[in-house]
Design a protein around this nucleic acid. Sequence first.
DNA 1: CTAACTTTCTCCACAGTCAGGACAAAGGCG
DNA 2: CGCCTTTGTCCTGACTGTGGAGAAAGTTAG
Lengths: 396, 396
Amino acid sequence: MRRMTARPANAHQARLLRLLRDGGPNSRAQLGDQVDLSRSKLAVEVDRLLETGLVVADGLAASRGGRRSHNIRLAPALRFLGVDIGATSIDVAVTNAELEVLGHVNHPMDVREGPVAVFEQVLAMAAKLKASGLADGYDGAGIGVPGPVRFPEGVPVAPPIMPGWDGFPVREALSQDLGCPVMVDNDVNLMAMGEQHAGVARSVGDFLCVKIGTGIGCGIVVGGEVYRGTTGSAGDIGHIRVEPDGRACVCGNRGCLEAHFSGAALARDAEDAARTGRSAELAARLEASGKLTAADVAVAAAAGDPTALYLIREGGNRVGQVIAGLVSFFNPGLVVIGGGVTGLGHTLLASVRTQVYRQSLPLATGNLPIVLGELGPTAGVTGAARLISDHLFSPA
Amino acid sequence: MRRMTARPANAHQARLLRLLRDGGPNSRAQLGDQVDLSRSKLAVEVDRLLETGLVVADGLAASRGGRRSHNIRLAPALRFLGVDIGATSIDVAVTNAELEVLGHVNHPMDVREGPVAVFEQVLAMAAKLKASGLADGYDGAGIGVPGPVRFPEGVPVAPPIMPGWDGFPVREALSQDLGCPVMVDNDVNLMAMGEQHAGVARSVGDFLCVKIGTGIGCGIVVGGEVYRGTTGSAGDIGHIRVEPDGRACVCGNRGCLEAHFSGAALARDAEDAARTGRSAELAARLEASGKLTAADVAVAAAAGDPTALYLIREGGNRVGQVIAGLVSFFNPGLVVIGGGVTGLGHTLLASVRTQVYRQSLPLATGNLPIVLGELGPTAGVTGAARLISDHLFSPA
DNA sequence: CTAACTTTCTCCACAGTCAGGACAAAGGCG
DNA sequence: CGCCTTTGTCCTGACTGTGGAGAAAGTTAG
């Protein structure tokens, strides 16, 4: 079939498309209740959208005491591709226009293999999803990469953990290969957008989304919009100092948060504990697989291993300390914790909460939920789909 | 004369008023170059503004090779009142519609005397300015208070250093007394707005404005707009922990930034140094006046006193440490340092810069100016005038 | 089954918004 | 003095958007 070519012609149409995306099918009358336009004007704009094929009217809804309404919905054949490139693995998903994930594949891969190899893999995964019948093509794609991005151009800038990506024209290259519009953003921002769209952050205007994976980052949402900073590096909290003269960090400094707690640091600490005999549980798991990950620590902690619990609590205290500072500064309405370490669950959360509630002032913490993300690995790909749909569902 | 009663009827008119406020008198043609409206539509809106009396056309500009243009300017009789209530003194200023300060008075007063006493003083100061012939009334007033504010209502909430102000209806009360519209905000936010309007932060979209006075706070500007947070306490960085098990703070915690460095902490440290014989210079000044302030330390430092210099550098390191974290997180395009301690000047600035440039990543610091505010005591009152003019120069 | 009512949707007349061209006013310059 | 530029005004025509009339399609009560 032909892909989406039209774009909303004005702000009203863009508004309607987003309402249909976020609220599902609606009648003209229901749409009218939400947009502050007269019924007549609304009808005109809906008709124009129907003409472009971006939305369709299919079937009649049940009567609510009067004439039955037509269901207006986004074109059911629209497909977005959400791509989340992590430090050690790639997630790719197809969504429909309502950003529901129809299919999701994951492939382990080190981002340091460089953009060419990674995108070869991404294209293969996109093709696989297509072959499985979930899509007959893509109308747009959102891409998340684990580092700062010059957003308007969709180009990574000076990414510390992705040598070889600096300046690579991700947006342009992928747009060419996929044959559809592409938007690129930091993976942490996409996670925030995902949780905002379909997760715990629905209806919260200002919030922080802390992603603890191989590294640590923080998505910042201000007034419902992702804040990216002057050079696209906003939220880069991994190198905030938490310990004077602490551990050496890859960035060249000492005592960075990321050096003391992150997926990578936790794995290192766990292996250390296993080798020095401080934890039989961890030692057994190291024996079995040759290396340890944050997931191993989570399992050991669930089994009651005191060393694992200690490591998680210590880490939680460190992150909590930083988050406490950010809460004082930013005064968010919600803090979401997500990423690979979500498996550490409530032990981690408890430490973070303790630090924040103890250190920050009551006015900022009084009504502040600190919660785990609820979308897990789909947060990033959902956010990616949201990114491109926000772009496409805005006036050209 | 009659005060301003009309408000802009639409967004175009609001836009025009702000252009005239920020750019001074303009011809219709010059305005047309800035607003993306046809000349005809522009002429209609200008005519309507002329009818309301908000703007006037007076005189002809010099020819630039063709027909001479009419000067369109904001009504010259418009007057705004800017009020900056600090912890220990009150600043009040009159401005014209272009927010130029026409008169400025200062009065020492402890904010803890409570809102009734403070506003009595404010009204007296406003009356004094009026009596001096600078204004025949006020069209609006902006008020800054040293604590968090529930912005839409203009009411202080849980202000730590202003007992007795919690919940006091500042906006309503003053609006009644002054007989004009009033807007209330945190003093730090107003300083940021002042520096944005007329100071070092012109044309910067995202920046931080750190005010170090009796306490420490930070104004946050995102996309040209002040960000206030969920409960109005954004920027409250005084109680971020900088020293595990550090000094006891009034907030009940230990190691808060404000306990280690602020105008109050610096004065305390200086008196301590004077009494323990570590600085003859400071001891002499203590002898002379009975107590020391940040200004005394500045003078001693300027005279080369090593203890004073040490205190400033130590303090700068502490603030710099916190700012470094905020820079990583927020990735601003500019950091402004202002408030009572601006007198500490470049010694302070050097320490802050050292910390930030050392601790934050190059992408965030590469093109980041860290500068002193250039408006001094007029920053707050200018920001206050800006606050109310932004309100009045927006569609009703 | 019919009448009355509700809800949804369409059609139409009218007021307002706005762009762009024609043109008048007012000056400079050779 | 004629030609140029700049500024400002006026007019037409296209488009935007409102609100009312009323048709379409259903439910409910008698």
